[in-house]
């Protein structure tokens, strides 16, 4: 009797002890990434040479995701696919929980959803590095940071980060002091330590939507298997859909 009572008391005490724990404040969680980065005077040229280094490659594989947060919601698109220049694309996409498949061979471009293929506008710009180089040339970032090395999947990478103005001026807005402010994004570029190839591009940005407030974007695209992709022939169900009466 006495023993069981003491067991009971001990367990109740242990319970009270654990549930009494509160959630303490961890201010470093907000600043850790800023603290870890340093200004790198050679950063810009490193990023440029990584982009130029892949610009002669003729094919690659891509795994990517794009998240937009607005209001209470967070919405995501994910991608996985193969690209071979000049005009081959095979891509799986998930948008709003629905799967889409894209097959393109030059001007022959189809998208599949709900088990049915339909023609789409062919995708023309298939080289991610082109738009990045154009961005760096038109508005070279004033500061390029370097972050601690990171390993993506199995590739150790140098990490560079910079802010740059948009190429396009359509989202330029009037600032608080009456000056025009260019729309910007934060770019994080991952360069492979071993072969110097462009490994990943991360884009973070925001836009103010009237009535809805800030919508924030975070996109990550991982590039791999450079020069190892061979164009595939069209999916058999697409052929069947086209050929069968």
């Amino acid at each position: 009797m006495k023993r069981s009572l003491s067991i009971g008391l001990v367990s109740l005490f242990a319970m009270a002890l654990i549930s009494g724990c509160g959630l303490t404040s961890t201010p470093t969680a907000l600043t850790s990434q800023i603290v870890a980065r340093t200004v790198d005077p050679n950063g810009l040229s490193q990023v440029e040479s990584a982009l130029l280094g892949v610009s002669n490659d003729h094919s690659y594989q891509v795994k990517a995701g794009m998240t937009v947060a607005a209001g209470h919601y967070l919405r995501r698109i994910s991608y996985y696919g193969y690209v071979s220049l000049p005009g081959f694309v095979s891509m799986d996409e998930t948008i709003g929980g629905v799967d889409y498949q894209i097959y393109q061979m030059n001007n022959f471009a189809y998208a599949k959803t709900g088990g049915k293929w339909s023609p789409i506008q062919p995708i023309t710009d298939l080289t991610p590095w082109t738009s990045m180089l154009a961005l760096l040339h038109s508005h070279p970032p004033r500061v390029v940071y370097t972050l601690p090395q990171q390993t993506l999947v199995s590739w150790p990478c140098y990490v560079y980060q910079f802010r740059a103005n948009d190429l396009n001026t359509s989202l330029t807005k009037l600032g608080a002091k009456g000056k025009l402010i260019a729309h910007q994004a934060l770019y994080t570029v991952y360069v492979d330590v071993k072969d110097g190839k462009l490994r990943q591009i991360q884009v973070q940005s925001t836009v103010g939507v009237p009535g809805l407030g800030t919508a924030s974007l975070e996109s990550t695209e991982l590039l791999f298997n450079y020069n190892k992709i061979v164009p595939m022939s069209a999916p058999s169900d697409l052929m069947t859909q086209i050929e069968l009466p």
Partner: peptide
């Protein structure tokens, strides 16, 4: 937009923030 547009957006990281920003304004 059509599914190809989303791929096109992705394959142009240099203009991605503009494209998504415009899409947000347009949808709203």
């Amino acid at each position: 937009k059509d599914p190809g547009y989303y791929t096109s957006m992705l394959l142009n990281p240099g203009t991605l923030s503009t494209a998504v920003g415009q899409m947000a304004l347009q949808t709203a």
